[in-house]
């Protein structure tokens, strides 16, 4: 092909290429915009999406309303600042108090921020300190910071087979934590206990067995069911 003919052709094609280039850019941004809208639309009706469970406020220490429910995502920070994923509007919490991360089949891993501490199921968690427990929360675990007491409720399907290691009720009372049962002495137990019944699995609390009571033939449930643990 002659040079001249080619130059004319190439010069004419300039407009074509620029037009196509612009069209491609416009299509790209339209696509981006449409995805954005669709994502918003889809998740608008599912406010629970991306959450693994909730923290229920058992004791608020004045500023928290008892019975309030705070949703918990898979991973993030917890504190009183609004930038946190789990915002606890209480003075006992530092702006960023804890980092949490849910590990499948293991539970919600709690790590304290620098200079902060908390109690998970009665065990002290400090910033990289000698943590007496491994800081994993499961369905029914209690988190205590100062006067605030929060109970974790995991959504069904995210359950964990293991149950929390809990101190005996007397010790729990000492910390001012609510006890699972009223008045029935319970042998202190250590170690991991497998959930025996559906109910235990569901509530996260063990049931006092007939055999374990001294002379008490009644079977008492270890605590209230999911819906009404507010005291």
């Amino acid at each position: 092909m002659s040079d001249e003919l080619y130059s004319v052709l190439a010069l004419g094609m300039r407009y074509w290429f620029i037009a196509l280039g612009l069209l491609i850019v416009i299509q790209t941004f339209l696509w981006l915009y449409r995805d954005h809208r669709e994502k918003h639309r889809r998740l608008k009706n599912l406010p629970d999406a991306g959450m693994i469970g909730e923290f229920v406020v058992l004791a608020g220490g004045g500023t928290l309303e008892e019975g309030a429910v705070i949703p918990v995502p898979w991973e993030g920070m917890m504190g009183s600042s609004r930038m946190c994923d789990v915002v606890v509007p209480s003075g006992d919490f530092a702006p960023v108090h804890l980092y949490f991360s849910f590990v499948r089949n293991k539970g919600l891993q709690i790590e304290a921020a620098r200079g902060r501490s908390c109690y998970v199921d009665g065990a002290l968690q400090e910033y990289r300190g000698k943590n007496t427990a491994d800081g994993k929360m499961v369905h029914g675990s209690i988190l205590q910071v100062g006067d605030c007491v929060l109970r974790l409720r995991l959504f069904a399907g995210l359950d964990v087979e293991r149950r929390a290691k809990r101190k005996p009720d007397d010790d729990l009372k000492e910390y001012g934590m609510p006890v699972a049962s009223q008045g029935v002495p319970r042998p202190g137990y250590d170690g991991w206990v497998d959930a025996q019944t559906e109910e235990e699995r569901f509530t996260g609390m063990y049931l006092v067995k007939d055999e374990e009571q001294d002379g008490n033939t009644k079977e008492t449930t270890g605590g209230s069911r999911e819906k009404d643990e507010n005291e």
Partner: peptide
């Protein structure tokens, strides 16, 4: 994560 998203 929220903070991370905002920063992103």
């Amino acid at each position: 994560m929220k903070r991370q998203r905002i920063l992103f």
